[in-house]
């Protein structure tokens, strides 16, 4: 285990940021700490880095007890949401910072900086100031700077949060490739489930200061431990107290399918290839739920407002592991 966090607790006044959190982050992997804002994931990352001290619990990095080590002794690379570029230094000097602090020989520093700038595609910007770079370039510089000191672990705090959607997407693909190249144990914080699902080997879902679930993206998506994890990883809709994915509900224009529920389409909203149908269940409660079908499917069935339909969860539909049992008895 590369990073072992056990029993970490952190409070700010009355607010409990982390409540007895224990988690193991394996060596060489790319792990995402995923959760809503204010859920404690950034605090956990900062405690691992030593930028914040926990009220209780321990942090072990590669077998070294690090709970009380100052950040400069932990050998971690940290990348901040807002880059934290050293504004008065050129890109090359920024990257060289950690090596200069470690008093490495000058030619070694130059060689290493050149290598890293090559790696993050910033070679031609070596002499610029950070202010002359775009957000994405600044963040790549910050990454090179963090990697320069050959950290045991690389920690990224919402690294793409301040970038626009397109750059964010490019950078996270790039981060994935970079990680495959560099193979350093990496932990990144995000509130974007798509980012976590796309980039991470393993995801730790954190909410209200607790770990909700740990697993691979597939495990989390296919077998969410509870309603929270399920609804955080994607859109959900509820039938009889059970959460379903809106695309895991099949729509029929005729009755007679075993277990199907009569309903009526209230609204339709077309977004690109998919159509989001708001459907009113024709039961006592008259709940409205959302069902997503493809544009082609909608056309072939002639789905439109005020049409009576019958709904049934797709065979193999994903539901939270715990919930069906509980609701069945309720």
């Amino acid at each position: 285990m590369s990073i072992k966090v056990s029993g970490i607790t952190k409070t700010y006044g009355d607010f409990v940021a982390l409540d007895d959190v224990s988690v193991d982050l394996p060596t060489g992997q790319l792990t995402a700490l995923l959760g809503p804002s204010g859920g404690g994931k950034s605090t956990l990352l900062r405690i691992i880095a030593g930028l914040e001290t926990a009220d209780g619990g321990t942090v072990t990095i590669e077998g070294t007890e690090a709970t009380h080590l100052p950040p400069q002794k932990r050998n971690v690379g940290f990348v901040f949401q807002h880059y934290a570029a050293f504004k008065h230094m050129s890109v090359a000097r920024n990257v060289a910072f950690g090596l200069e602090i470690r008093k490495r020989p000058k030619d070694e520093i130059r060689r290493r900086v050149d290598e890293l700038l090559e790696l993050v595609h910033l070679s031609q910007f070596a002499d610029r100031l950070p202010a002359q770079l775009s957000g994405g370039q600044r963040q790549r510089m910050a990454l090179a700077r963090a990697l320069a000191v050959e950290p045991t672990v690389l920690l990224l705090d919402e690294p793409f949060g301040a970038l626009d959607a397109k750059v964010r997407k490019e950078l996270r693909e790039w981060l994935r490739r970079l990680h495959d190249e560099v193979q350093v144990t990496t932990v990144f914080v995000t509130h974007d489930q798509e980012e976590a699902l796309e980039v991470a080997d393993e995801i730790v879902v954190i909410n209200e200061g607790r770990v909700e679930q740990v697993g691979t993206p597939d495990q989390l998506y296919d077998a969410p431990a509870n309603d929270f994890v399920m609804s955080f990883l994607g859109p959900t809709t509820e039938i009889d107290g059970v959460l379903y994915r809106p695309h895991d509900i099949e729509v029929f224009t005729h009755p007679g399918i075993a277990g199907s529920i009569p309903a009526r389409i209230v609204r339709e909203l077309r977004v690109g290839f998919e159509v989001r149908l708001t459907v009113e269940l024709l039961d006592a409660a008259h709940e409205e739920i959302t069902v997503t079908v493809t544009r082609a499917h909608q056309r072939s069935l002639g789905l439109r407002s005020d049409l009576d339909v019958w709904l049934a969860p797709t065979h193999g539909a994903v539901v939270p592991i715990m919930e069906p049992v509980e609701t069945a008895t309720a």
């Binding site: 930028l51 400069q72 901040f80 934290a84 050293f86 950690g98 470690r102 700077r145």
Partner: peptide, 25 residues
């Protein structure tokens, strides 16, 4: 204090951080 924290995480001591990051700022 982002820049100062970044310097600390890169191995700079308190004095080094002050001299190289805070003071120029």
């Amino acid at each position: 204090d982002d820049q100062e924290q970044a310097a600390r995480s890169l191995g700079a001591s308190g004095i080094q951080t002050f001299r190289r990051i805070t003071l120029p700022g």
